[in-house]
Amino acid sequence: MALSGNLSRPKRFITTHDEEGKAIIDSTLPEDLPFTEVPSKVVNLSTCYVTEGFPTVLEDGKDVAVYQQHLADPPGLTVSNGTVIRYVDIRPGAEPLMHRTVSLDYGVVVEGEVELILDSGETRILRRGDMCVQRATMHAWRNVSSTEWARVLFVLQPVQPHVVAGKEVTEELGKIDGIRPST
């Protein structure tokens, strides 16, 4: 897939140990991260790493194998028993898509400026280095620029069932096409 406008192609380096116990770079997977364009062409996504289970099992590369499975069969936005780290590249002028993940998400703006839009109508502009702790609320992201792509790095982790206003919160993908429900 083509790069998102002027944004660089990030690399992922996974460390491991050699037979002597020294830290080395694992060469199981390519360093270049794969990006996928969602059918609406609003965002490009790169699932940088996925884990399952708490705590994560590193023995015999089990965590790398879990990630490889998720590369072959991508997860929904979240994984109910693990973590997801993902780049989201947002097209300039793209319509913000209101949605909710049932997770605790850390979002850090890496490039550009984005507007966080909440279903209450409250908004905030986040610039490079700013972060949002997203707590299973209905929200959308809008790239403030009409000419340049923006990139946000998200780390998503599952949460216990969460009740708001007497109703259990559920995942709502809204108009986000090409993303399957989380499991």
Rank of each mutant, 00 (worst) to 15 (best):
A2C: 03
A2S: 13
S4F: 11
N6R: 13
N6V: 10
F13S: 04
T15F: 06
T15S: 05
E20M: 10
I25R: 14
D26T: 09
L29N: 14
D32A: 08
D32F: 11
T36Y: 14
P39S: 06
S40Q: 15
V42C: 11
S46R: 01
S46Y: 07
T47F: 10
Y49G: 05
Y49C: 03
G53M: 14
G53Y: 15
F54P: 05
T56Q: 00
T56K: 00
V57P: 02
E59D: 14
K62H: 13
V64W: 12
V64M: 10
Y67E: 03
Q68A: 10
Q68Y: 05
Q69D: 10
L71C: 00
P74E: 04
P75F: 08
G82A: 15
G82S: 14
G82N: 15
T83R: 03
T83C: 04
I85V: 00
D89Q: 01
D89T: 01
D89L: 10
R91I: 02
A94L: 13
E95N: 09
M98G: 01
R100T: 09
T101G: 09
T101V: 14
S103I: 03
L104S: 08
Y106K: 04
G107V: 03
E111Y: 02
G112S: 02
G112Q: 09
V114F: 00
L116H: 03
L116P: 01
L116T: 02
S120A: 09
E122C: 10
I125D: 05
I125Y: 09
I125A: 06
I125R: 09
M131C: 10
V133D: 08
Q134E: 01
R135N: 00
A136Q: 13
A136F: 15
M138A: 11
W141Y: 07
T147N: 14
E148F: 07
V152E: 11
L153A: 11
V155H: 04
V155N: 06
L156R: 05
L156E: 02
Q160A: 15
Q160T: 15
Q160C: 02
P161G: 08
H162Q: 12
V163Y: 15
A165R: 15
G166Q: 14
K167F: 12
K167D: 11
E168V: 00
V169Y: 13
T170S: 07
E171D: 04
E172I: 02
G174V: 12
I176A: 07
D177I: 09
I179W: 14
I179P: 01
R180Y: 05
S182V: 05
S182Q: 09
S182W: 10
